Amino acid sequence: MSVKVTIYEVALAARVSLATVSRVLNNPEKVKPDTRERVLKVIKELGYRPNAIARGLASRKTTTVGVLVSDITRASVAEMLGGISDIAMKYSYSIKLFSAHEDVNILELINDIVAEQVDGVLILNDELDINRMKKVQELFDENEIPFVLANVVYEDKSVPSVSIDYEKAGYEITKLMLESGRKDIYMLSTVRKYSVNDKKELGYTKAMQEANLMPRIFRTSGTTSVNRQHFANFFADKIIDGAIGVRDSIAVSFMNIANETGRNVPEMVSVAGFQNTKYALLSRPTLTSIDIPVYDIGAVAMRLLTKLMNKEQLDSLQVVLPHYIVRRESL
């Protein structure tokens, strides 16, 4: 009695992922020729016979876009998804959302995304370090799946992306605070690493050093219940007359602590944030913030991905959208 060969055995023998074997069977034109030939050779040698019904289901032609996010609860992510969704609806695309929590194996998740037979991917996850980003890039390239980074900073200029110039934005908001007479300015950043925050910190540091002042970066949690206590403890005995939060929510959280402890904003401490979300308008005093067109970033990224999926000619792989400072009562 013969033993039935599984797709797992084929993937192992061919040294590829399950997703790649699936693509060879269902969408061979999307697999690099040398990889495709290697998989087909193993299939023949092992005598693998795929389930005909499964193949028929998997090979149905749909236009599906995978969207990879890190934290869907962030206000900026929700707004960006709005831009993505509106353009996707225009082209009758289906969207599959994939969430990469802190403890998720990102490479396994990417393999799952590939196995879903998506036609393209938007990456909104700005927590991927350079090494993991390279692995992600290799997996998508191997399976010939176009992808676009949306509001994610990555130094490889061959990777399509849509964002703003975060370093410039960090520099400009710091310069504005310096010009208002502040000197002991802290940047309130996050313990968790985000590619865009690294750039904000670079811009802040550049402006402070140009003014011959010591850059001071304080790292805390994005969770309000945690960072409020951090701010209350850390700044109890610190001299500070300016604070720039890498998110509006962090800036407002600090501003509340400052006001509650007698450091009135903006009389004694100027405060500013990034993103220009609803928090900036609801805070008291209202918050000065960098306006980041996150809806437009999502919409433009979806348009760019559409061109890549249709193999259309591109004017540029790197799209940098404009930003501006909305000055309110806190500065």
Rank of each mutant, 00 (worst) to 15 (best):
F234V: 14
P293F: 08
V136C: 10
F235Y: 12
A251K: 00
K311E: 14
I43E: 01
P28D: 10
Q229R: 13
L287Y: 01
A251F: 01
I113G: 01
T220M: 13
S161W: 01
M177D: 00
E108L: 10
F234Q: 11
F254S: 06
A13Q: 13
A88N: 10
D141L: 11
K183E: 14
K4T: 12
I123E: 00
L331R: 04
R284I: 05
M133D: 00
K135N: 11
E108P: 02
I325N: 05
K32P: 02
T288C: 11
E102K: 15
I87P: 03
T277C: 03
A52V: 14
T286G: 07
K168Y: 07
R328V: 10
V121I: 15
K44L: 09
T205I: 10
M80T: 11
Y8M: 06
N131A: 13
V294C: 01
K206H: 10
L331E: 11
V326Q: 12
S249V: 11
E179A: 13
G245V: 01
E29N: 14
K44E: 15
V16F: 07
T224S: 09
G298W: 00
G242E: 06
R55E: 13
R55K: 14
K41R: 15
E144I: 12
R38V: 03
Y194G: 02
K32V: 12
Q209L: 14
K199G: 02
S316N: 11
T6F: 11
N105I: 06
R219A: 06
P266F: 01
L46R: 06
I164N: 00
K4V: 12
I53Y: 10
S85E: 15
L139R: 10
D86C: 03
S99V: 15
V67P: 01
K183T: 11
F140R: 06
G242T: 04
A236S: 15
R182N: 09
D129F: 04
R263K: 15
V300M: 04
P285F: 03
Q318E: 12
A236Q: 15
E260N: 13
V21H: 02
A301Q: 00
S22P: 03
R247M: 13
P28R: 10
K278C: 05
T205Y: 05
P266I: 03
I297V: 06
A54W: 11
A78H: 05
K183A: 06
E267P: 03
F254N: 04
K157T: 15
Y154D: 02
V39W: 03
Y279E: 15
D165G: 04
R23V: 08
M187Q: 12
Y93K: 08
I292V: 15
T6C: 06
E138W: 07
D184M: 04
P266C: 06
A169E: 00
V31W: 03
E172A: 09
K96Q: 12
L107T: 14
